[in-house]
């Protein structure tokens, strides 16, 4: 019945701002505000958006690294948010995360062997005598040598450390891996290596990725589907080709126009937005993008647009949260920059 591996419904993550002498809750940072999406088994769904739009927070909330304020996260039919702490601990075997900073994500006092062994010990993956073989296998899988097993993190380069992070995530045989900006701290040539490794692993181990990134080139390379976030909300979601070739939300268009084209003779129209991202403490009413949108009208200020598809202009599964998809498409509405 359920074709989705992971389903996120109305996820909200508010961080309280405390103030006054009694530490009252003065306001909230609405980091993730009513986000819903689904991830199918075996696919790579990327979440993109500028810094502070809530993409990492979404990933952390799914794993309950920060307890979400409200919403539903269903993984293989089970609501993760209603699990007790110890049930959740067992569940974590299937959901892993690869972090952004390979220098901070490994305990500097543990050798690779200790890191991997601990992971398997926590989830009780294998009997003790078989762990050694598994570790060697994992090292080989991520492209490290068996002789490096007893080294400490500081003896590795950034790319190698990220491979250790990947090996650690793989050691418990997860089904879903959340890659939280996993390649953005690496330099470009290493990025490509790690991305290709992730792709290879996906094929071999039948993994599902939730790939959080801000680099659109990376996203284009690895994703099957892409979700665009702006100020804690989903503005557009669709399969990669449809979204990259035919973006419908004005924000997505702006974002995509920022991708450099490797052809100096080709002139590209670049949309430049005015102003900064508004504060997530008091987000704009209606459509959150209306303060910077070149098409904004009074309706945008008042009504929150739902994610919807427009059959004439978009393929199935491609949705955008804009009131005026058709009008912009037909040229009826002109941008006022």
């Amino acid at each position: 019945m359920t074709t989705e591996l992971l389903k996120v419904n109305n996820l909200k993550q508010y961080f309280p701002i405390k103030g006054g002498i009694f530490g009252r809750r003065v306001n909230d940072v609405k980091a993730v505000d009513d986000v819903s999406f689904a991830v199918k088994p075996g696919e790579t769904l990327s979440i993109v958006g500028e810094s502070g739009c809530g993409k990492s927070t979404t990933g952390r909330a799914i794993l309950r690294l920060d307890e979400p304020t409200s919403g539903e996260v269903t993984f293989q039919g089970k609501d993760l948010l209603s699990l007790s702490k110890s049930e959740m601990r067992k569940m974590r075997k299937d959901l892993q995360i690869i972090f952004q900073d390979p220098y901070a994500s490994i305990n500097p006092r543990q050798t690779v062997r200790q890191v991997l062994n601990e992971a398997m010990e926590i989830q009780n993956v294998l009997p003790k005598n078989k762990r050694e073989d598994r570790m060697l296998e994992l090292m080989e899988t991520v492209g490290l040598g068996a002789h490096q097993l007893d080294r400490f993190p500081h003896e590795f380069s950034g790319g190698q450390r990220q491979r250790i992070g990947i090996a650690r995530a793989l050691s418990v045989d997860p089904k879903l891996i959340i890659c939280d900006e996993s390649v953005s701290a690496l330099d470009v040539s290493i990025q490509a290596q790690v991305l290709n490794l992730l792709k290879k692993l996906q094929k071999e181990l039948d993994l599902t990725y939730l790939f959080i990134a801000h680099d659109l080139g990376v996203v284009r390379h690895i994703s099957d589907r892409v979700l665009v976030m702006y100020l804690g909300k989903v503005v557009e979601i669709g399969d990669k080709k449809s979204l990259f070739d035919n973006p419908k939300h004005p924000y997505t268009k702006t974002l995509l126009s920022a991708i450099p084209v490797p052809d100096p003779t080709k002139k590209k129209e670049q949309i430049i937005l005015k102003g900064d991202v508004p504060s997530p403490i008091n987000p704009p009413s209606g459509c959150r993008f209306h303060t910077r949108c070149p098409f904004a009208t009074d309706k945008c200020i008042e009504e929150v647009p739902d994610l919807r598809t427009s059959p004439e202009h978009m393929v199935d599964g491609h949705q955008a949260a804009c009131h005026y998809i058709e009008e912009i498409e037909s040229g009826e509405m002109k941008p006022n920059y």
Binding site: R92, I97, A104, S105, E118, Q123
Partner: peptide, 11 residues
């Protein structure tokens, strides 16, 4: 982050 990592492993 490494504390989050072991937490994500279910420690």
């Amino acid at each position: 982050e490494y504390i989050d990592a072991v937490r994500a492993l279910g420690a």
